[in-house]
Design a protein around this nucleic acid. Structure first.
Length: 665
RNA sequence: GCCGGAGUAGCUCAGACGGUAGAGCAGCUCACUCGUAAUGAGCAGGCCAGGGGUUCAAGUCCCCUCUCCGGCUCCA
């Protein structure tokens, strides 16, 4: 028998008999590797562990405790889920079941339009456990299209996928199931100990060799989902689960979820008394309470300051306007679904709540003739807009029906557009960093399919200008095909928060359309009329969303400059009250936000606890020694150990510096 | 908008079978005067989301609406 050479990722190579399987190689390298293996890559191509090696190859064995290994575990666990559901729910059709971040899901259509309820999850989990205990083998096979159709004769979704692949119309989802370039479809069967087929799925693989090799899993929730994501298509029942290499990793994941829940801005909003959504007002419409109001005001004040320095001029516009304005702008043609219905006034004139600020700023531009000398003209407004979001999408402060955008429109010459975009991106990233967000990537959204105004050439030019600006930054740029607004492409800045979630923050859009629709022009140096272009941009996106993101990013523990209460002063006993109020007055004069918690709020320990729970950055305890020496005891939020005997002046200076430099955390 | 779940005191939650609502924390009062994460006692607090129905009787059962939660679709 001839030998083949297997080269491993570390560059070492080994000789094996031709026909040796990947599993055998793994076992030969080490017993533990053999057990930890879930799949492998041969020359970069995924294979199962049972794959025989018939020539010299580069081999990477994928183990269960890596991202790729977990993906295999999750995908294989999804198959077990589907098998369990088909066992428990006769007639169930299974659609697709991929691995996703941290887990997997599988979509089903149940007989008689039945639905899953939460209590079904336990039964299904138990069934899955018994399947795993039965140690079923995963066995790959390739069949031609007609055979595939026969195999899945009673599975309409699988048949649809096969037909689509055959017609060469497979999209990414289908490719995940069968491999887009396959002349045949690949299927996986689960076989029990007797070799009987328990379950068959259309699937590209790879999979673990048998269910015994799966790790720890948990079904998380049931949800509705549309077949192929089409809201006009059939609605399927989706089950989400999570799966990990072992029980410990699963527990850690569940713990992380609890952590995320603890910093949920909706929860902290109540606990810290920042904002609320009274039912009496309506869904998606927030009120900010005094403490949230302080944070918001400080956020906005600093933004104004920075905008002023960056050459923006401040404008104001009303919340409602006559219909004609949004007809000219195109909003009623393209954005009507997102607008509140009109109110009829003045004997038949329809007025609309504004969903965007741009037409108003345009009218300001057009209020008189403009010279090239005025450009770029940057108009800024904290503009409140109202959008009729569908009832199911409203979500805390991050998706609301009434919001305030830190909106600006830059009117500039086409020639200057590139320069302006680059400096704008610098401005955006620098401002976000001051609020504590420093981890970004960029997304470029292009012309939406069918829902856009303007020619392809104009779109291409605008898109290219954005791309070029984006490329000057040392950041990842991802493409969002068809994700632009109806009037132009956009770059959005996606920020990653303290626990790794990404949020869409700033958007920058180039617009050739609205200047045309409103017939904007300026007089050039050549004394001719020229069309300006517009850049729409919002840095926070919406103040509400940005607020919500910051709450979660800081887990409610705002840095000093944003904290609603920066310092709590706690007199040890009644006889220290006068001094405590004097300390508070001194700090207040120095610009601090201070509260005094005296004996009415309970014993000293209880008051400290209370201030800590409210995440106040500095708790000052003052007693006899402090009165005598004009000092304070400093219990900083970030430190374990309180300091005693700090001079009041010194403390005031320290906090003032921290506040002015906007130290994060 | 669609699928699933839920709405009881400011917050977190109890309330088998239908018999008319309870706790902890927060709040208020009093006592305590305390040196770094919960002093004690007392008081007050609810149209059980809203509306309709079944019933002698509804927080509990049925229907509708609203709101929230988890997803899908959409999006700042």
């Amino acid at each position: 028998m001839s030998q083949i050479t297997v080269t491993l990722p570390d560059g070492s190579s080994r000789e094996y008999d031709r026909g040796t399987t990947v599993q055998q190689v793994a076992d030969a390298i080490g017993k533990r590797l053999g057990q930890a293996a879930v799949a492998a890559k041969v020359g970069g191509v995924w294979v199962d562990l049972g794959h025989p090696l018939d020539r010299d190859v580069d081999l990477a064995i994928v183990t269960r405790n890596t991202d790729e290994g977990r993906e295999v575990l999750r995908h294989s666990t999804a198959h077990v889920l589907a098998q369990a559901v088909t066992r428990l729910f006769p007639g169930a059709k299974y659609a697709i079941g991929p691995a996703v971040a941290d887990g997997f899901y599988y979509d089903f259509e149940l007989a008689d339009r039945a639905t899953f309820s939460d209590s079904d999850l336990e039964r299904i989990e138990a069934e899955m456990s018994s399947i795993i205990a039965a140690d079923q083998a995963f066995v790959r096979d390739e069949v031609d299209f007609d055979t595939g159709r026969d195999v899945f004769a009673d599975q309409r979704f699988k048949v649809e996928i096969i037909d689509k692949v055959r017609a060469g119309a497979a999209d990414a989802d289908d490719a995940g199931e069968v491999g887009a370039d396959a002349a045949a479809v690949s299927i996986y069967r689960n076989l029990d100990a007797d070799g009987a087929v328990c379950f068959t799925d259309l699937c590209r693989g790879p999979h673990v060799p048998s269910t015994a090799r799966l790790g720890a899993f948990k079904l998380m929730r049931v949800a509705g989902a549309y077949w192929r994501g089409d809201e006009k298509g059939p609605q399927l029942q989706r089950i989400y689960g999570t799966a990990w290499e072992d029980r410990k990793a699963l527990e850690e994941h569940l713990h992380r979820l609890e952590e995320a829940e603890r910093r949920d801005h909706r929860r902290l909003g109540v606990e810290l008394d920042l904002f609320s959504f009274p039912d009496e007002i309506g869904s998606g419409l927030a009120v900010f309470h005094p403490k949230g109001g302080i944070i918001r005001r400080v956020m906005e004040d600093y933004s104004r300051e920075r905008h002023e320095q960056a050459g923006y001029e401040f404008v104001y516009s009303p919340h409602i306007t006559k219909q004609d304005l949004f007809e000219t702008s195109g909003h009623l043609d393209w954005f009507a679904d997102g607008m509140f219905p009109p109110m009829e006034l003045d004997g038949g004139t329809d007025y609309y709540l504004k969903p965007m600020n741009c037409p108003f700023h345009i009218l300001i531009f057009r209020s008189r003739t403009r010279s090239y000398r005025e450009l770029p003209l940057r108009m800024f407004e904290f503009g409140s807009v109202y959008r009729y979001e569908k009832s199911g999408v409203v979500h805390g402060l991050t998706r609301v029906r009434g919001m305030t955008q830190d909106d600006a429109h830059i009117f500039t010459t086409k020639e200057n557009m590139g320069v302006e975009l680059v400096s704008l991106l610098d401005f955006v990233l620098s401002l976000l960093a001051d609020y504590g967000l420093t981890d970004f990537y960029l997304e470029l959204s292009t012309k939406p399919d069918g829902k856009a105004v303007g020619t392809d050439e104009e779109w291409a030019e605008a898109t290219e200008a954005l791309r070029e600006a984006a490329l000057t930054k040392d950041l990842t740029l991802v493409l969002d095909e068809g994700g632009g607004a109806f009037y132009g492409p956009k770059i959005s800045v996606q920020a990653t928060d303290a626990i790794g979630r990404t949020w869409q923050m700033s958007t920058i859009q180039v617009d050739f359309q609205l200047p045309q629709r409103f017939d904007l022009w300026y007089t050039g140096a050549d004394n001719e009329r020229h069309r300006p272009i517009m850049i729409h941009r919002a840095l926070f996106g919406s103040v509400e969303r940005f607020f919500g993101v910051l709450v979660e990013h800081y887990a409610g523990a705002f840095p000093v400059w944003l904290a609603p209460v920066q310092v709590s002063v706690l007199p040890v006993a009644d006889r220290h009250d006068d001094y405590a109020y004097e300390v508070a007055a001194t700090l207040t004069r120095a610009g601090r936000r201070v509260e005094v918690l005296d004996g009415h709020a309970g014993a000293l320990g209880a008051r400290i606890r209370r201030a800590k729970m409210e995440k106040v950055p500095y708790v000052l305890v003052v007693g006899d020694d402090d009165v005598e020496h004009r000092t304070v005891g400093v219990n900083a939020r970030r430190s374990e150990q309180p300091e005693r005997g700090v001079a009041l002046d010194e403390f005031a200076t320290r906090v003032d510096t921290e506040s002015r430099t906007r130290v994060s955390g």
